[in-house]
Design a protein around this nucleic acid. Structure first.
Lengths: 340, 340
DNA sequence: TTGAAAGCGCTAACAT
DNA sequence: ATGTTAGCGCTTTCAA
């Protein structure tokens, strides 16, 4: 059988409360007693019963994470980083993958809420802000990851998407591109931020997007990003004059873009330079290695975990905090038009 | 405040027990009463307190999953599939990433055990079988994923690794390769199984591995697979005669292999055909798209979840079961030497 | 068909 | 420095 405080108490002729105090490093316990108790705990490999503890403290020592797609390396990396950080403090992590389905996400949030998680971390695939109401109502602290909602104040950790756009676009300009197109993502904060960064970078070089140079992949998710990128690029290639640089919403889109360029008999980067976002692990191994903006997902996970732990530990509500992580450009062949 | 059974009982002038019975669909409750209770539950958005329930039933409605690396698409896919399946039945999933570190894995298992998970699912990075003892002792049902331990009986779900080796090697033979090398993985069941399949396929075609045609990537994990694959391939290319086909332990290794072949001024597949394992998502986008054996990780996750749920629900120990999932060959350019 | 009593393992508040 | 009492929210057993 699994040992309980009561067992240890009986073995040692002490009361349950004394054992409990030792367990939680309560100060007023005699040195002798403490040692005896700890010894016996080791012997029995005692593990506190979290359910019992939760019942009385009202805390579950548990954190919930909901991501749109666990298969996506960006979210997998975040999940991994969070898992590592919170475990150190004795928390365990529920992870749930919503498959980019808002209805499923709602259910998952509800289920984790029923588990009385101490904090919720959500990379939401919602378009509206409704599902966060139940969190507010139940007073469960939560942090949004990666995607924000305009006009909705909340704790947030994610990459600085405007900086992503600036970084990528400025790089293309510096590589000599003069007709830089952007294949933008769907109507979520990340895509909007990158688009804004793109415009901003052009503006600071006295440039502006040419007609038809901003195309959208539509509402499609990452799993079909390459197909959407291909289609979008075909449109761009039909323009006259055609672009000489393309900043893609993300790496899967950039793969489709490069394929479309090759299929048209053109070269990367000589005819068209390409920059993606995400810095996926395969970027090095492509026909033309892909320049990409790294989102620093590990750091996002770490910061989210730190903030989550702070919120879990604090008795009183922690002030809202929005943390933007700096992205980083990783230059590879797909954009190297200048020799160095 | 969050609603409790007691609140509903008071509101309706019933006892807590009655409410509890309605909650669990207990038969002997009057139709009228049941309806009244359910109505009130909806109104209050009642969610049962899992901690209280666990405390008395001894079940947590929780499942633990430990993988070596959540970033690896193979494990991410398994985790995702399991998460989907178990949620349907009202279970939540703790996911933990051990970073291929046996000591960390031990800790994570211990922590999840302390959480009283109903079932443990483990893709172990252990070399020995020690850490499973605590599971046996505490009588927590568990299932090993992907990696087995010779001579150690346990529940297991994974791909049929011998079939992986047979599939890949037979394919290379059929493509006309006659000097087929194998870059094998570390001393774990998956690598050993694939190696055996490789030998077996050669044998059934009256062939045998040539001298020096089996090289190992050593103990390195997947994150440096490409470097290890590169080094191993350099050795193979030095052989006379050199191989005309290489079956690689996994896709990252195959990437390194192809790079080494290109660096040597040779062509894939004309000079050397290459087959990997894992069918990673980028396989289509490489300089030469990579033929790979798919491990059917989604199915592995699904079967593991089904088995786990069966074990969680059953009062008595469920008979041991070892399930091998059939792999599938996905042919791409890296091995297509014959026209069709 | 409904409810009263007991208790799961632990912690908080208050004695001693 | 140690122990007593009470109770967290729920389920189980048994009685009405």
């Amino acid at each position: 059988m699994v040992a309980r405080l009561k067992d240890i108490a009986q073995d040692l002729g002490l009361s349950v409360v004394t054992i409990s105090k030792v367990l939680r490093n309560h100060p007023d316990i005699g040195e002798q007693t403490r040692k005896r108790v700890l010894k016996r705990m080791k012997e029995l490999n005692y593990q506190p019963n979290f359910a019992a503890r939760s019942l009385i403290t009202g805390r579950s020592w548990t954190i919930g994470l909901v991501v749109p797609d666990l298969l996506h390396p960006f979210f997998a990396q975040i999940a991994k980083a969070i898992s590592v950080e919170v475990r150190r403090k004795g928390y365990s992590l529920f992870i749930s993958s919503s498959d980019e389905d808002p209805a499923l996400e709602q259910e998952e949030i509800a289920q984790l809420l029923a588990r009385r998680v101490d904090v919720m971390l959500i990379a939401s695939s919602q378009l509206t802000v409704e599902s966060f109401r139940q969190l507010e109502e139940q007073r469960v602290p939560y942090i949004l990851l990666d995607r924000q909602f305009p006009g909705f104040e909340s704790n947030f950790v994610g990459v600085d998407d405007a900086a992503v756009g600036v970084l990528a676009t400025t790089h293309l300009i510096e590589q000599g591109c003069r007709r830089i197109a952007h294949i933008r993502g769907p109507e979520i904060s990340t895509a909007i931020g990158r688009l804004n960064g793109y415009k901003q970078a052009l503006a600071s070089h006295q440039m502006a997007p040419l007609a038809g140079h901003i195309v959208s992949i539509g509402p499609s998710g990452d799993h079909v990003g390459d197909k959407a990128g291909y289609a979008a690029t075909v449109k761009l290639l039909a323009l006259k004059p055609r672009p000489d640089g393309i900043f893609c919403f993300n790496d899967p889109v950039a793969l489709g873009t490069m394929r479309a360029i090759f299929d048209a008999g053109l070269r990367v980067p000589e005819d068209i330079a390409v920059v993606g976002c995400g810095n996926l692990s395969y970027s090095d191994f492509l026909r033309v290695p892909l320049t990409s903006v790294d989102q620093n997902s590990k750091m996002i996970g770490k910061m989210a975990a730190t903030q989550a732990l702070k919120m879990a530990e604090s008795k009183t509500p922690v002030p809202r905090k929005s943390a933007l992580v700096a992205p980083q450009l990783v230059v590879r062949a797909s954009s190297m038009r200048t020799k160095r």
